[in-house]
Computed example of a mutant assay.
Amino acid sequence: MRWQSILAIYILFWAFSVFLVLPFGVRTAQEAGADLVPGQAESAPVSFNARKIFLRTTIVATVLFLIFYCNYVFGWVTADMLDWVH
């Protein structure tokens, strides 16, 4: 696999992982005991720590990508194994 393909697939895993990581650790104003700003949704997070989200996303994406790449190299699950019709 070329390095450009590896990079593109990793970026896809990273973008997917953002949506997996975002809901974890979110605290609303009610849970944190803070006052709501007028017009603020009750479900809005109290604070947003981009570094923590970036770090968690990178860790999750790296683990998922390593599993994907090891499967690519070692052939644990192939397309022939997933062909249940024939």
Rank of each mutant, 00 (worst) to 15 (best):
W14Q: 02
R56L: 10
A61D: 08
S43Y: 13
F13A: 01
E31N: 07
Q40N: 08
L7G: 07
F24M: 12
Q30E: 15
L20Q: 06
A50F: 11
T62M: 14
F19I: 07
I11H: 00
R27F: 14
S17N: 05
S43P: 04
Q40F: 12
T57R: 04
S43G: 10
L12W: 03
R56V: 02
V63P: 11
Y10N: 01
L55D: 08
G25A: 07
L22G: 06
P38V: 13
V37C: 07
L12I: 08
R27A: 14
L12V: 04
P45G: 06
L7P: 02
V46G: 02
G25H: 08
A32C: 09
R51A: 07
I59F: 11
L7D: 01
F19W: 11
N49F: 06
F54Y: 05
L36G: 00
V63I: 15
E31H: 04
W14E: 02
A61V: 11
F54H: 07
A32D: 14
A32P: 06
L7Q: 07
K52L: 13
P38E: 13
V60F: 12
V18R: 01
P45T: 04
E31Y: 06
L12Q: 04
T58Q: 09
G33A: 11
T58P: 05
A41W: 11
T58W: 10
F48D: 04
R51G: 12
Q40W: 11
A44N: 10
A29T: 15
A41C: 08
P23L: 13
F48M: 12
L36W: 11
L36M: 14
L20H: 01
S17V: 03
I53W: 06
G25R: 08
W14F: 13
Y10M: 01
F16H: 00
V18Y: 11
V63W: 09
F16W: 09
I59K: 06
V21D: 03
